[in-house]
Nucleic acid binder design. Structure first.
Length: 434
RNA sequence: GCCGGGGUGGUGUAGCCUGGUUAGCACAGGGGACUGUGGAUCCCCUAGCCCGGGUUCAAAUCCCGGCCCCGGCCCCA
């Protein structure tokens, strides 16, 4: 007999995992809804073409791609942004703007698993479609920050960069392979300074250019410190306009009251696939080897790539498998009690007494008390033992004597105290003890 | 896709280097001692060498391949 294993890069989620996830999702959901975002869900799989249109044919390597029985080339969704854009194009182009949608669901990417990276993972994210105003960027960045705060996380920052400024920067240096340069800059934190310098030299940059790269990288921190230096570095008109937007962005973030968590980091690249302007990523200090815990940005070209009329959009996603371990390691999650509060044990094997045990259990359940009765039909000492092991606070004992008198014995599992009460009073009595 | 480390009952492990009894231990699980009182004790039971091939008289142990886990690279939409 061959034992079937879990598929590589997937997880079984047990009750103690689920309760934590549910808690975190609920906190995030409350904030999303407070901001007026409405929940949507698109299909788990799409035509592979959808993702190719966005990211090029090479992405198939990173997709869970397959052919179905009808010969359709499909892929499990690697994120929801493409699907949401597709949905928008298919039916919401004339809907009132902005459209504010959120989702909490699983994604699939065919990659080698490692710390904080699985082949199936969950994201909570939002998309804000139809506004090119900087207000839209501010709204989603503020929402991202408030989402983390709602889970109890405090030691994190959302670092804001800008794709246009990086393009301008590449132009200034006369670099054609701007994406290559950005990837290199993105890796700056993983390398020693000398290695980084060497890599930049190999990329074809002279000393002056390399100094400019370092100036760019050091453009990191609070806007009051960073923006004046940025204005010296960037001289083009386009760049000046973007800098003005970023200045306004941070003014708006102050109005949201969350500016302490937002920083500028012009070295952020974030993949580069379809981001067009403001990009951002959330970093939480941790010793688990986890980098970004979420991120997003503006994607003003994607909707027309999918055949819609040009429509600006921005959004973000939070990686749950990255966030939860960090919350756990910082002890920010509450203690959860899983399982029943009341265990109903009965003595004897007669049908009548079993039925009475079920009836009592049902009374408790109808009163919204988490209760179960001893399906195993254990002897009393084992039943108490079991009740103890599942953490039941109260055991209801139904014996022949009780049965004959129309009563049950209620035992407080912490103190060991017991009272015999008429069955009709049992629920009331138990409620007092919980 | 590439690199490094690993894989022994449900869980945690001993054994592996240096091949040789019936693969040991603990916890968990089921039953009993105990036909109305738990967190205890005792007894019994269940259950394992990731898969395949090779070397050998003999493989958990040595060799090769695969799968999976942990971590790193590429990539990270």
């Amino acid at each position: 007999m061959v034992r079937i294993q879990r598929v590589k890069g997937t997880r079984d989620l047990l009750p103690e995992d689920m309760i934590k996830r549910r808690y975190v999702f609920e906190r995030i959901r409350e904030v999303f809804e407070a901001y007026g975002f409405k929940e949507i869900l698109t299909p788990t799989f799409e035509y592979t073409k959808l993702f190719e249109l966005r990211s090029g044919e090479e992405v198939v390597e990173q997709l869970y791609a397959f052919e179905d029985k009808g010969g359709r080339n499909l892929s499990l969704r690697p994120d929801l942004t493409s699907s949401v854009a597709r949905l928008f194009v298919n039916g919401f182009q004339t809907a009132p703007k902005p459209i504010k949608w959120y989702y909490i669901t699983n994604m699939f990417r065919y990659e080698e698993p490692q710390s904080g990276r699985l082949r199936e993972f969950w994201q909570a994210g939002v998309e804000l479609i139809g506004s090119s105003n900087i207000e839209a960027d501010a709204e989603v960045i503020a929402l991202l920050i408030e989402s983390y705060l709602s889970t109890g996380l405090k030691e994190f920052t959302v670092n804001v960069g800008n794709r246009i400024l990086l393009d301008e920067f590449a132009k200034m240096l006369g670099v054609k392979d701007d994406i290559g340069l950005m990837r290199l800059i993105d890796k700056k934190d993983k390398m020693k300074r000398e290695e980084f310098v060497k890599a930049l030299q190999e990329f074809g940059l002279n000393e002056e250019d390399i100094n400019k790269v370092f100036t760019l990288i050091e453009l990191k921190g609070k806007p009051d410190d960073v923006l004046p230096k940025a204005r010296e570095l960037f001289t083009s008109k386009i760049a000046k306009e973007e800098l003005k937007k970023i200045e306004e962005l941070f003014e708006l973030l102050k109005a949201y009251g969350i500016e302490d968590y937002a920083l500028i980091d012009f070295g952020i690249a974030r993949g580069f696939d379809y981001y067009t302007s403001i990009v951002f990523e959330a970093i939480a200090d941790n010793d688990l080897g986890i980098g970004s815990i979420g991120g997003g940005g503006r994607y003003d070209n994607l909707i027309e790539v999918f055949g819609g009329k040009p429509t600006p959009a921005t959004g973000f996603a939070i990686g749950i498998e990255r966030l939860i371990p960090i919350l756990e390691s910082k002890r920010l999650l509450p203690e959860f009690k899983i399982g029943s509060d009341v265990f109903v044990a009965y003595i004897g094997k007669e049908l009548g007494i079993k039925k009475k045990a079920i009836e009592v259990t049902q009374m408790l359940r109808k009163a919204k008390i988490r209760a179960e009765y001893d399906i195993q039909g254990r002897k009393l000492s084992k039943a108490l033992n079991y009740a103890n092991s599942i953490g039941a606070k109260v055991v209801i004992i139904l014996g022949k004597k009780d049965f004959a008198e129309g009563k049950v014995t209620i035992r407080d599992m912490e103190s060991g105290e017991q009272v015999a009460v008429p069955i009709k009073k049992a629920v009331e009595e138990v409620k007092k003890m919980l």
